[in-house]
Lab assay of single mutants.
Amino acid sequence: MDVFMKGLSKAKEGVVAAAEKTKQGVAEAAGKTKEGVLYVGSKTKEGVVHGVATVAEKTKEQVTNVGGAVVTGVTAVAQKTVEGAGSIAAATGFVKKDQLGKNEEGAPQEGILEDMPVDPDNEAYEMPSEEGYQDYEPEA
């Protein structure tokens, strides 16, 4: 019985440690998101679009440190934060509304985080759909 109880105690310690790591990862992701939003706020009209992409990228980098179902929630929060940063930029006159959601080359930025393969159960990952990809044929 002692062996059984000791095993359960060790398992509990492992769960607590994993929860603490997840909590730490979420806190880091939130900190990076805040950094990115402050970065966007300090940019001029020309830099705002690039700044919004930076927020998304920093958040995406930190999301990889967070495991399990938390990833889905962090990704949703990050996307809403990026959308909010863009709205703030438009409201303050840093950028025109028609410039939001495009990178410096004018290509749409939507789907940055949505296409990231995420499995809350950590069982399997699927690649994003290939609808947006084109076949590449090298020139002879």
Rank of each mutant, 00 (worst) to 15 (best):
L113C: 04
V52L: 15
E20R: 05
Q24V: 07
G47V: 12
G132K: 06
V82S: 05
N103I: 10
T59I: 03
A56T: 13
S129H: 08
E61A: 06
D115C: 05
A30P: 01
A30F: 14
D121W: 08
F94M: 04
P138M: 07
A69R: 12
V16Q: 04
E105W: 01
P117M: 09
M127Y: 10
V40T: 01
Q109E: 12
P120L: 10
A85Y: 06
L113I: 07
K23V: 09
K12S: 04
K10N: 03
A29C: 10
V77E: 01
N122R: 03
A89F: 15
T59Q: 01
L100E: 06
E123W: 13
Q134K: 12
P108E: 12
G84M: 15
F4M: 02
D2V: 01
Q62D: 01
M116C: 07
V16T: 07
A53V: 15
P108F: 09
P128E: 07
V70N: 02
G31L: 13
V95Y: 10
V66P: 01
T75W: 13
K10C: 03
Q62R: 09
G132T: 14
A107Y: 10
G51A: 14
K97A: 12
V66T: 03
Y136Q: 10
E13I: 05
V48M: 12
K43T: 03
I88H: 02
V71M: 09
A140T: 06
G106L: 05
K12E: 00
Y125C: 09
V63H: 01
H50E: 03
P120R: 12
E35P: 01
V15L: 13
A29M: 07
N103E: 08
A124G: 10
G68S: 07
E61M: 12
L38K: 07
K60S: 04
A17V: 10
K43P: 00
F4K: 00
Y39T: 03
G41W: 06
T75H: 13
V66S: 02
G14F: 14
E114V: 09
V15Q: 00
A53E: 03
V40E: 00
M5S: 03
Q79A: 07
V63A: 03
G36H: 15
L100S: 15
E105F: 13
E110A: 03
A76Q: 10
E104C: 02
E130K: 09
G7C: 08
G14W: 07
E20W: 14
K45F: 13
K6W: 08
G51D: 01
E139D: 13
P120V: 05
T59R: 01
H50M: 13
P128Q: 09
K58D: 01
A53G: 03
E114G: 14
K97F: 15
F4L: 08
A56Y: 12
E126M: 09
V63W: 15
N65A: 08
E137Q: 06
G7R: 06
K34D: 00
A30S: 02
E13R: 12
A17N: 07
T22F: 10
P138W: 10
A76N: 11
A78L: 12
K10S: 07
D121A: 05
T54Y: 15
D2L: 11
L38T: 02
H50D: 04
V37F: 02
A91K: 07
G47Y: 15
Q24G: 05
T81M: 08
D98K: 14
V63D: 01
D98V: 03
M127G: 04
K43H: 04
A19F: 15
L113G: 15
K58T: 05
T81P: 02
E20D: 06
K45C: 14
E123N: 10
M116H: 12
K23Q: 08
G67H: 12
G132N: 13
A69S: 03
G84Q: 15
A19K: 02
V63L: 14
Q109P: 05
E57R: 08
V15A: 03
V71T: 05
I112R: 09
P117T: 13
A17C: 11
G73K: 11
D115W: 03
G47I: 11
V40S: 01
G73Q: 11
K43Y: 06
G68V: 06
A53P: 01
Q134A: 06
E123L: 06
V95W: 08
E46P: 02
G36Q: 10
V16C: 07
N65Q: 12
E46Q: 03
G84S: 10
D119R: 03
V37Y: 11
K23C: 14
P128A: 10
G47H: 13
E131H: 11
I112F: 04
K97G: 08
A85K: 02
